[in-house]
């Protein structure tokens, strides 16, 4: 049973090697709060007192300004950043898709990369090899599968990355920003596959600046503002609030 339970989670990054001039408590239009810790070390507070509860079937969109904490929140759910304070309880197999090219070697062939990426994602070499043909078929890359990735175009590499990432069956799927999906012909095909993939996952959390994308795939939206949960609710209400906040910020400037 897939579930995500965050309670009062804060993430504070210590900043080493920077000597700012009296920034403590300064406010910026972007990013989390910058403050000074007890030991005098500068801290960037990427998330502050955030609570979140998701169960099977939830499709959550994350929106907010640059540095609002969207990617950090995804990484907390993935278990990458243990909370500085608060608790995190996550059940189910998590798949995080942040960098589509993770674990791919430009020097290796398409086939070898299928295995490499699969191993990164926790498959055994045998399980990974079993997926080569399906992925190759879907990408329509034909003979290029036997050439090093470095000889491919960026779009072709993204095709492979996309096909690989969506060949797995996670309980909890975490997506950062939009996946690049290649040219128009492939995009149509990819959208269908992405829909199926998302439908199979128990929980999906997706961060994006694209309102149409979030509206199309999410039932709930969380608006983040300087690391805090400003609002969580149905897309219509949250986007209304988000746009109003953006207008206010523009007027204030």
């Amino acid at each position: 049973m897939a579930s995500v339970e965050l309670r009062d989670v804060s993430i504070r990054f210590p900043v080493y090697g920077a000597r700012p001039r009296g920034l403590g408590g300064a406010f910026a239009a972007v990013g989390g709060a910058i403050r000074r810790g007890g030991d005098g070390i500068l801290l960037v507070e990427a998330l502050r007192g955030l609570s979140l509860s998701l169960t099977r079937g939830d499709r959550l969109g994350l929106v907010g300004h640059n540095g609002a904490g969207k990617s950090t929140l995804l990484r907390v759910i993935a278990g990458i950043y243990p909370p500085s304070s608060g608790t995190r309880r996550v059940h189910g197999r998590v798949l995080s898709l942040f960098d589509p090219m993770l674990g791919m070697a430009l020097e290796c062939t398409g086939r070898e990369n299928v295995v490499l990426r699969g191993i990164y994602m926790g498959l055994t070499p045998r399980q990974a090899r079993a997926r080569i043909d399906e992925v190759a078929d879907f990408c329509e890359l034909g003979p290029y599968m036997d050439l090093p990735l470095g000889t491919w175009s960026t779009g072709m590499q993204l095709r492979l990355a996309f096909a690989l990432a969506t060949a797995l069956d996670p309980d909890i799927l975490l997506l950062d920003e939009q996946f690049g999906m290649g040219d128009a012909a492939f995009q149509e095909k990819a959208e269908g596959r992405l829909r199926d993939f998302v439908a199979r996952a128990g929980i999906v959390v997706q961060a994006s600046h694209s309102e149409p994308l979030i509206r199309a795939s999410c039932s709930k939206v969380l608006l983040l503002d300087h690391g805090r949960a400003a609002m969580i609710g149905p897309p219509d209400a949250v986007f209304a609030r988000y746009r109003a906040a953006a207008r206010e910020a523009a007027v204030a400037r």
Partner: peptide, 8 residues
Amino acid sequence: AHTLKQLC
């Protein structure tokens, strides 16, 4: 670091 920030 890059891998550690992408996967748990």
